[in-house]
């Protein structure tokens, strides 16, 4: 009944108005959970953006006394090598969210490792999932069988195998995130496609003899984007988590740029002396992941309400 009310409201609105982008964004603010989540994520994105042009000190030079507590010059203290923790923490955002270093050179492209990895798995997963879900039958069987094999790998083991085989590097991490994420995305896309393809508008498209690719990408995909978007956000969270873990294990993103996981790894040997160098990056990872989770949860609820 609420939807009807909403629909009625809209009927009153001006004729021939396109649904505005702002309206879509405003959904987020209707949910408190989503708003909190978005603020948390936005905080780190902004911190990262600032660090691109300015950090308090050089993140990689040992300019200060070791293991300082927070003070007026070093707001978050210094680490065991006398490096400013705030600067390092700020720059740690970059490789995850904002830039990917291309192999070999000094060049990097915008969009962090976590983002590209998730985009990769989204691309691969959607293609596979839509094909499996829409075509069904043998295509479905084969695709799902292959995905089952991929999903059977514990993620971190798959990372380890990939890294053992291909070595370290931003691209390898992106590849690993793509491979580990794709089966999950594909399963989701498949279940959505299986559901959506029962709808009458798909039959209508079929009675126009539209091609399978048209139906999959023009008729099904636009209606699956909500859940896929929510899922992708959660996946960015997982990816950040994983990058942190790999960094901690010392096999993640290569130096020199600091990432949060490797900061923890370096600092843990001195944890009896100074806990702060572990606490700050840990907090950073947790808040970013929690933020993404809340954002996704809130968005999902709102989307469901909106569709009802």
């Amino acid at each position: 009944m609420n939807a009807e009310a909403a629909a009625n409201e809209e009927n009153k609105s001006e004729k021939r108005t396109k649904p505005s982008l702002w309206k879509t964004i405003s959904i987020i603010f209707e949910s408190r959970v989503a708003t909190i989540g978005m603020v948390m994520v936005a905080f780190w994105v902004i911190v990262g953006c600032i660090s691109l042009v300015w950090t308090p000190y050089d993140p990689n030079s040992s300019d200060f006394i070791q293991n300082l507590s927070p003070n007026a010059t070093n707001w978050l203290g210094t680490d065991h090598m006398g490096r400013d923790l705030l600067s390092r923490l700020m720059q740690g955002t970059q490789v995850i969210l904002l830039k990917t270093r291309l192999p070999g050179g000094e060049h990097s492209i915008p969009g962090g490792v976590a983002i590209w990895g998730v985009l990769g798995s989204l691309f691969l997963g959607v293609i596979l999932g839509l094909n499996a879900g829409y075509r069904r039958g043998w295509t479905d069987q084969i695709i799902m069988q292959v995905l089952d094999a991929l999903i059977a790998f514990p993620q971190i083991v798959l990372y380890l195998v990939v890294i053992a085989a291909l070595g370290q590097g931003d691209m390898v991490v992106i590849l690993a995130i793509t491979i580990t994420g794709a089966p999950g995305v594909a399963r989701l896309a498949r279940s959505l496609a299986l559901d959506i393809q029962t709808r009458d508008y798909i039959r209508a498209a079929e009675t126009r003899a539209e091609s399978a690719w048209f139906i999959m990408f023009r008729e099904i995909l636009p209606n699956a984007r909500g859940p896929l978007l929510v899922d992708s956000m959660l996946r960015v969270g997982y990816a950040i988590f994983m990058i942190g873990t790999l960094g901690f294990l010392g096999i993640g993103l290569p130096p020199p740029d600091p990432d949060w996981g490797s900061m923890v790894n370096e600092a843990r040997k001195y944890i009896f002396v100074n806990q702060l160098p572990v606490i700050w990056p840990a907090l950073a990872i947790s808040t970013l992941v929690i933020g993404l989770n809340l954002f996704a949860d809130g968005l999902r609820e709102e989307l469901m309400r909106y569709q009802k």
């Binding site: 709808r199 009458d200 508008y201 039959r203 209508a204 009675t207 636009p222 209606n223």
Partner: peptide, 19 residues
């Protein structure tokens, strides 16, 4: 194909919600 078209049952699923 053009000469043979169809009208469906369920008003909620007869139209693609995205267009």
């Amino acid at each position: 194909i053009q000469e043979l078209q169809m009208v469906f049952q369920n008003p909620d699923s007869t139209m693609n919600p995205s267009y």
